[in-house]
């Protein structure tokens, strides 16, 4: 579990992270979204114990993480700009991590070799950017961390490898209740792996949501009624966050339980009634109402 309590971090005169409270539950995958400069990286670096917060506390498993070797042994951090020791091969780098992380699992390292399929005697610096990122995942996952902190990790990976890594992550989360926090500036990239989403903007966390709630709760329906009155009647009964008219067909974004919505709509006998798929992005935008239109600018 990662917990940040009223955390603020300033760089000289600029506040990078402003009074943030965040809780990432054990075994969940938390997606941290935000445009460039929103403060995601700074927050993650504080979680990784690199930066010391100015005020507030960041704890993992209820212990402050800064300079805490005991807890940092269970944490792995993959930064957006990777770093490996110059001239090291994958095997040498693995040996270094083995000396540093007591939980290092050599058999796991060998198992993962099948996933990544890179010769361990190759020098990391000579690998492509995407391959280097795979190596970073490989090393991190071999450390058997309880907490994995990933800063923009999907960049530079091909779709096949992206899927493979997602699968490995899911497996670890499922098997060992690994906690993952993952940052991105693109919601679409991570929407299929996260169960929680937080959106940062100008150093603040403006939205925090559980995806299942969001998905179960928000629906896009297409309806057409004989009379305006019928439509008005159901709109009054439903919690409509957005309404659009296309000819005689209305598109409504509605909150609430699906069966309940169906029952209400059907009671007025519509001659068109469809429930349409809603992208996560739309959900956010509609869900957040006024804030949502701000988010629209942030998310892409």
């Amino acid at each position: 579990m990662i917990e940040a309590k009223s955390v603020t971090k300033k760089f000289h005169n600029e506040t990078a992270v402003r009074n943030i409270n965040i809780t990432v539950k054990r075994g969940s995958i938390y997606g941290l979204l935000g445009s460039n400069g929103a403060g995601k990286t700074t927050l993650l670096k504080m979680m990784a114990g690199i930066y010391r917060p100015e005020t507030g506390t960041i704890s993992i498993e209820d212990v402050p993480v800064f300079e805490n070797v005991f807890i940092k042994k269970k944490v792995c951090y993959i930064p957006d700009t990777l770093y490996f020791f110059p001239q090291n091969t994958i095997a040498q780098m693995a040996e270094y991590y083995q000396n540093i992380y007591s939980e290092w699992d050599a058999s796991r390292f060998n198992t993962l070799k099948r996933v990544f399929q890179i010769d361990t005697d190759r020098k990391i610096h000579k690998l492509s950017k995407g391959m280097q990122r795979q190596v970073a995942f490989w090393l991190a996952l071999s450390c058997m961390p309880s907490v994995l902190i990933l800063d923009e990790p999907i960049d530079g990976l091909d779709p096949v490898m992206r899927q493979k890594i997602k699968n490995v992550l899911f497996q670890d989360v499922a098997d060992r209740e690994m906690t993952v926090i993952i940052s991105s500036h693109n919601l679409r990239e991570i929407e299929d792996i996260c169960d929680h989403i937080g959106i940062m903007h100008q150093g603040e966390l403006i939205v925090e949501k559980e995806l299942d709630d969001l998905k179960a709760d928000t629906h896009k329906i297409q309806v057409a009624f004989k009379s305006e009155l019928q439509e008005k009647h159901i709109v009054d009964q439903l919690e409509v966050v957005h309404q659009e008219k296309r000819g005689s067909v209305s598109v409504l974004i509605v909150k609430g339980e699906e069966s309940n919505i169906k029952r209400i709509v059907r009671s007025e006998k519509p001659f068109v009634f469809d429930i349409l798929p809603l992208t996560l992005e739309e959900m956010f935008i509609y869900e957040m109402g006024e804030v949502g239109y701000e988010i629209e600018n942030i998310l892409l």
Partner: peptide, 16 residues
Amino acid sequence: QTKSSSDIIHSLPIRR
């Protein structure tokens, strides 16, 4: 003195 190495090294479980 280099950001990338500083970040990685200090994220490792070793005290300063």
